[in-house]
Design a protein around this nucleic acid. Structure first.
Length: 158
DNA sequence: GCCAACGTTGGC
DNA sequence: GCCAACGTTGGC
């Protein structure tokens, strides 16, 4: 089993939107970066991912989801009316992938980006590296545990 | 709204 | 294959 971090803008689709979906499950669409796409392809059912709110005030980790369906062609790439439409993608050889995610936990308090940066043990976290723009990132088990502990603390660390 | 960082595109 | 131009991400 592997650990991940997946970014979404809460103004577009946040963790509370996921909570309101049937079975608290939704496809994760719109990934248009090859490296992030390759991470999606390697996900297995049962993998866990932090749900990160980007372009938010404040940005941070809002909760945990599990991968409930492995990668399949992202339908929005073929939808002319979707902002994610890609005219160069071919149905016989789809360029972009989705997975399904199912809600596991909404953290009582968002773990803010500031709080993450304040943890010396997370100094090497890819998420915190300058200029990182990948919307799907792998997480080392050690980092996963540290952040999980932060989530379970009674007081926020921002 | 600004802008640094970075990926992609396309001319050559 | 190089690299300038351009578009996007995402924190601030």
């Amino acid at each position: 089993m592997a650990y991940w971090l997946m970014k979404s803008e809460p103004d577009v689709f946040g963790i509370n939107d996921l909570a309101q979906r049937p079975l608290q499950t939704e496809l994760w669409d719109g990934v248009r970066n090859y490296q992030a796409r390759n991470y999606l392809k390697s996900m297995q059912v049962g993998d866990l991912a932090f749900f990160y709110h980007s372009n938010a005030k404040p940005p941070g980790i809002a909760g945990i989801v599990t991968i409930s369906r492995t990668a399949y062609p992202d339908p929005t790439q073929f939808d002319k009316h979707s902002p994610y439409f890609d005219e160069r993608s071919n149905p016989t050889d789809p360029r972009w992938m989705s997975v399904d995610v199912t809600l596991v936990t909404i953290f009582e308090h968002l773990i803010s980006l500031d709080a993450l940066r304040a943890q010396p043990a997370l100094a090497d976290l890819p998420l915190l590296r300058r200029g990182n723009r990948l919307s799907v990132l792998p997480m080392a088990p050690s980092a996963w545990e540290i952040i999980n502990r932060m989530a379970n603390m009674p007081v926020s660390h921002a």
